[in-house]
């Protein structure tokens, strides 16, 4: 299955929130929806969920108009909350029933997800007796209690401690392995990088980047080289050695005691110089190389590069 957002426009009053937004997500992969605060991530999710309609454009599932109520969907809203004064178990069963499960399945799934999240002893507790992080996990259980085929998570990692974040990461991985469509937004770039095959980056309501992370990184110039040697090297002599090949040069001073020596260096190649040429030069000169690789931009750097200027 492929869920496709196609040329969607949306305005609230005179403010245009989404402009010609298109992206797609397929079964068995996770799409990271990125963007700064107010970029329109939540709005596009709400449009997918049909809380309101787009002014223009369409949401398609396998090229047919997508109606959320006809499919099994798990949606974790940005606004977190349930009935604070009601027992957790009954609330989850209620939600599962609303999502179309039989009473028996609703019960089974509620117990299953509470166990998966390590909250099976909280079945009869009232929601407001739980800590904020655990309430967040209940929220997640509420979105997934119907074992949905399409999972849309708005900022699922916010408010979770590192242990719970890992738990959630594993759940997302499982969902992807089980062949679900997973779309999630997050500001934690390390999780996005780890979990998503593809990202869509929203800036001021337009998609500025939509591709696989691999391709995106490839599209950035790969002329930043990291070199490290088995023995400390004199900074001045290395600088002199590569002088004509690089635009910038930086020594990383960790691991050595003296000011003028270093194990590793970062250098930016001149436009007409290839990586091979640099490597060959070091090898020919009998330097013992420990590590030699292109430094890829991190997702965070890409994010700042693409969305940083937007106000």
């Amino acid at each position: 299955m492929t869920l496709e957002v196609k040329n969607v426009y949306k305005s609230f009053g005179t403010k245009e929130v989404l402009k010609d937004v298109s992206f797609s997500a397929s079964s068995g992969s996770a799409l990271g929806l990125l963007g700064r605060n107010g970029a329109g991530k939540t709005t596009i999710m709400r449009i997918i969920m049909r809380f309101f309609n787009a002014d223009k454009g369409s949401i398609l599932l396998d090229n047919k108009t997508f109606y959320p109520e006809h499919h099994s969907i798990g949606y974790l809203p940005e606004e977190r909350g349930l009935y604070p004064k009601k027992p957790i178990g009954s609330q989850l069963i209620y939600l599962a029933r609303l999502k179309g499960l039989s009473t028996k399945d609703a019960k089974t799934n509620t117990v299953k997800w509470l166990e998966r999240l390590g909250l099976d002893d909280q079945f009869n507790k009232k929601l407001n007796t739980l800590s904020k992080g655990n309430q967040q996990k209940i929220q997640l259980a509420a979105s997934l209690v119907n074992d949905p085929d399409i999972v849309i998570l708005d900022e699922p990692f916010s408010g979770l401690d590192p242990v719970n974040a890992v738990l959630l990461k594993n759940i997302v991985k499982e969902l992807v392995e089980d062949g679900k469509i997973v779309i999630f937004s997050s500001h934690q770039m390390n999780y996005v990088e780890e979990l998503c095959d593809r990202i869509a980056l929203l800036t001021l309501g337009t998609i500025v980047l939509h591709d696989s992370i691999f391709n995106i990184k490839k599209s950035y110039p790969n002329d930043n080289i990291f070199v490290s040697f088995t023995k400390p090297q004199n900074v001045a002599s290395i600088k002199n050695f590569v002088g004509n090949y690089v635009m910038s040069f930086e020594a990383q001073k960790s691991g050595t005691n003296t000011e003028n020596e270093a194990f590793s260096f970062i250098m930016k190649l001149k436009d007409d110089i290839s990586k091979d040429a640099l490597l060959r030069m070091f090898v020919d000169a009998d330097y013992e190389i420990d590590d030699f690789h292109v430094i890829e931009p991190t997702l965070e750097e890409i994010f700042v590069d693409k969305a940083g200027d937007a106000i």
Partner: peptide
């Protein structure tokens, strides 16, 4: 109450 406890969005994503 459903609105102020922010339960609404989850609820209406589950039923009409």
């Amino acid at each position: 109450t459903e609105k102020s406890s922010r339960a609404m969005e989850l609820l209406i994503s589950s039923a009409k």
